[in-house]
Amino acid sequence: MSANATGSEASSAGESASTTADGRLRADLVLEYPFNRTTGEIIGAFLTGLREGVIYGVRTSDGSIMAPPTDYDPNTAEPLTELVEVGPAGEVKSWTWCAEPRRQQPWNHPFAWALIRLDGAHTHMLHAVRVASPAEMRIGMRVEPKWNAERQGHICDIAYFEPVAG
């Protein structure tokens, strides 16, 4: 047997080495964890719903609807089993302006993060709202999802929310 291996420490994906203006070494370094998370039945159903273009919440032991859903009741820890369709439109309950988007955020231009209470739900879902400026955002505004044409069972199947016209 002979080892056929190179490298010892960091992943070299995307690595680019150079020197700084004052002659010191520098390099891009990417530390990445490629998690593949098992969803469980409820969150699996939520993601399956997203792929099919429908948003599901779950009924909790006091009758309220949590969306996005969880597997267990947050108050009693009972397992939850009843999926309920919510939305797709909803109401902005809180928001914050992202003026300087970072890599892997939805856009490279400014946008809003919002907590959205989808119609029929009693809890809020975090998602991005596409508007041109913070002046277009207010608590209580109506928003609706814009779906991606190709969906894979992921929260990003909803590309973003946008204000309901009219």
């Binding site: 990445e32 964890y33 593949n36 098992t38 969803t39 699996g44 159903a45 069972g153």
Partner: peptide, 10 residues
């Protein structure tokens, strides 16, 4: 059914 989801962190 969706059974798993990729959530890479870098």
């Amino acid at each position: 059914q969706v059974r798993s989801v990729r959530t890479p962190i870098s």
